[in-house]
Design a binder for these strands. Structure first.
Lengths: 345, 345
DNA sequence: GCGGTGCTGTAAAACGATTTTTGAAAAATC
DNA sequence: GATTTTTCAAAAATCGTTTTACAGCACCGC
């Protein structure tokens, strides 16, 4: 009893033309007599015709699909990129397929292979590691792609990221300007180039001023781990006067560790967070934060990818966005300006 | 110079068999001589063969695709559902295509139509409104589907949601038990049935105890709006001793409004948040929160959808999950037990 | 008036898998 | 040993679109 979905043939019949003509009208691939075209369009409308994407794809070899691979769909930074992308694609007849690599190389590989079997028109990938071994797959598929957020060794890749050195530097400079000398950097995972660069930027500020290097603690990727590592560090080291967090999850980890110990922000310790979410502002002490221009990045990713899809053959671009420091109440002058001589034992 | 992607024909040739046999081996649709099968598998492996999904889809009529439509890809509740779903699908050869309706009926309609053109095997939708006008599209496409989070009037729909009445009730009961009588409910949008039910659950607790009804403020969907509306309400009404927030965004709105006014939690006002995110815990005063079992819901959605895809014809189920109240430091006994007689003017 | 040249529509050939049909061996039966 | 049945792979049909090849027609210049 299940009625068949309407095909191009039905439309053709109703409009009294051949299927080829219908296709030409609907895709504008070849000029068609205006009156006929009108009839075709009416017929299509009346029947509620939607071209079967599978058949179209099979013939043309390119799906109007953009595949996105991110390391973690529970990380708001990644989902906000996905969201920004979706906004860009929505009106242009593309669909978005998403997958999470969970930061594992082999998952990354298998998910990528599965998505490429759809022959997507383009690919956006946030690699789980700098090596990015799945790159070979992409090469083989010859699909236009953009690497986002992470830096890659792949010379052929278009990349969209933030200026991580500068991001680290503006945070550190702000702390130094406030008078802090005893600063802890909460880094997530140092084997990621972008995190290393944020560190480097921060460290270079101290270096250029002839100040001693900061302490760095590597917190790992997720929130609970970060919280534990930071707590352990705080319990076994002299308390810094300021903390610079390099990702949104480490920011949470720092907040958690400080809250547990009832360490006041910014009275005892100043804090700079990374990324800028509503929960960072909806606080008694809103967080000073290094804000990534997520929306702009999403748009840039799509702009670049779209250009590539449409045949642009310019050399690969490496677009870098500047982060903004949103100064709020969580950073203040240290209570003991000479931070090196005090602090808990 | 672009080498062609390897097709089933290439594999067949290399293994010295026909394409049909390759298909039978790889899909197990019909028995094939073990030795031959082995040869075929080796050839496929050697060539790195991946079946063109489009061709397969065209023939079989069903894509191994699950389409997901959510109201907002920037809302962590919705993305966590997507994430949980992705985990379920990953190993079963399905891909996930996502789209955002932005809470607009016509966007919902057009995005749904676009996704259905791929003839997905299944559909998960979180409708933007109770009316859910796009339902007609789904009926026409005869695709198995599950409605998540929202309640729908559609009698044929499988739904997965939380027990909203109970969720509202456990929050309110906790506040009443603590001694609060002057309670404000921060609801997002009352035209959504799930929000109305949370309200109803909360209100019924007061009713059953013979207490006066709570104040309710409708904050709207997004964070800044919620913050403004709440601020306005607080400025023009007597200050309650406790606030019950009914969504994660309203929780943020409440926090923001209270922070701006330097109203201490829980000393001046107790607060119960909705959903349970790391940022609610990583605070000096961790939030008491009504936690939705997101992971379990994601799994249930997939289980139900999968059953339907595989031909299960049992009557539509309406699965409800119970929320958990996580009691933390943001709720306390009101400073003036008789809340009606004090408060700011 | 005639051959050429756009124009515009139809007919038919792809696309690459799956599935049905066919056919030729091998196995079983008498 | 001849005939029937079974087995299993090859061949062919199919899905619905796009695109190529071709044909009819009008119009052009000579």
């Amino acid at each position: 009893m299940t009625e068949k979905p309407i095909s191009i043939r039905d439309v053709a019949e109703r409009a009294g033309v051949s299927p080829g003509t219908v296709s030409n009208v609907l895709n504008g691939s070849r000029p068609v007599n205006a009156a006929l075209a009108q009839r075709v369009r009416e017929a299509a409308e009346a029947l509620g015709y939607q071209a079967d994407r599978a058949a179209a794809l099979l013939r043309t070899g390119k799906a109007r699909i953009i595949a996105v691979l991110v390391p973690d769909l529970d990380n708001p930074f990644f989902t906000s990129i996905v969201s920004a992308l979706e906004s860009g694609l929505r009106d242009q007849g593309y669909e978005l397929i998403v997958a999470s690599s969970r930061g594992e190389d082999d998952t990354e590989h298998s998910r990528l292979a599965a998505m490429l079997a759809w022959r997507p028109a383009g690919l956006v990938v946030i690699p789980g590691s700098d090596e990015f071994p799945a790159r070979a797959l992409i090469d083989r598929a010859r699909v236009p792609y953009v690497v986002a957020d992470r830096i890659t060794l792949d010379p052929a890749a278009n990349t969209i990221s933030v200026d991580n050195e500068s991001a680290g530097a503006i945070g550190m400079r702000h702390l130094v300007d406030k008078g802090h000398r005893d600063i802890l950097i909460a880094a997530s995972v140092l084997k990621l180039a972008n995190i290393r660069e944020r560190c480097a930027g921060a460290v270079s500020v101290l270096e250029s001023l002839g100040l001693p290097p900061p302490a760095i603690v590597e917190t790992g990727g997720d929130f609970t781990l970060a919280s534990d590592r930071l707590a352990a560090w705080l319990d076994s080291n002299r308390q810094p006067t300021a903390i610079l967090a390099l990702t949104n999850f480490t920011t949470l980890g720092v907040l958690s560790a400080l809250a547990e110990r009832a360490i006041a922000i910014p009275r005892a310790i100043s804090l700079i967070g990374f990324d800028d979410y509503a929960w960072m502002r909806a606080r008694t002490t809103p967080l000073t934060a290094i804000q990534q221009p997520v929306q702009a990045m999403g748009e840039a990713i799509w702009a670049r990818l779209k250009a590539r899809i449409e045949g642009d053959a310019s050399p690969p671009a490496h677009i870098q966005f500047q982060c903004d420091l949103k100064v709020r109440a969580s950073t203040a002058t240290p209570s003991h300006p000479d931070g090196t001589s005090t602090g808990a034992g």
